[in-house]
Design a protein around this nucleic acid. Sequence first.
DNA 1: ACTACACTTCGAAACATGTCGAATTATCAA
DNA 2: TTGATAATTCGACATGTTTCGAAGTGTAGT
Lengths: 104, 104
Amino acid sequence: MSNYQNNKALAEMFKALSNPHRLVLFHRLMTCCAPGTKCNADVAIKFCVSELGEGLNIAASTLSHHLKALHQARLIHMERNGKNVECWVEPDVLKELSTFFNQS
Amino acid sequence: MSNYQNNKALAEMFKALSNPHRLVLFHRLMTCCAPGTKCNADVAIKFCVSELGEGLNIAASTLSHHLKALHQARLIHMERNGKNVECWVEPDVLKELSTFFNQS
DNA sequence: ACTACACTTCGAAACATGTCGAATTATCAA
DNA sequence: TTGATAATTCGACATGTTTCGAAGTGTAGT
């Protein structure tokens, strides 16, 4: 985290994860593999926006706003597929964040 | 991150790290060992409040406010020692955060 | 007791965030 | 082309954050 840009980018990731609703959304995308197995699949499981929001009891506009925030922080990817927009997490970002807290 | 309390506590940690100034402060405390060596010392290096704020160009009251936020999020420890207040990071919290992003 | 130093609390100002409903855009199917 | 479904943008409001200087608290030395 030596340079300023990196610090700013990291702070923006943490800001995106600082809201309980967004943290749930990210966690749903993050735990892409079967429980107990190591996540090393090349193809991440994708969720569409409305699927992700299930059980959260927030308006669709709020959900969209939160996912945009996660996307702008470069934590998740989003891609339109027909009527839906699919969201997923690339393993790279998990590795980056994991090693940040694990560094010497 | 299955239960609600854990989610809330994690979100509060990320909120504390979401401010660039606080992230710098935390990082200074976190990188307690010599560069390139694994941090496995039992005794964390401690900094007093004013030392931590060096070069950040923020008012003492702002610095105090930020450290309080890190402390309330359970990211850092604080203890008065004479005129100074010493701050440090316990390795446990780094491990917790590292494994969160590394989980299956 | 007085002073100096380190830090915290308070009050205020500017700014950012979370949330909603309504309106808008995008896509597909009939 | 019309309608249905999925998602986003907009405007508004309440609430929270960042920051400062001023004032207050705690500790050590004179």
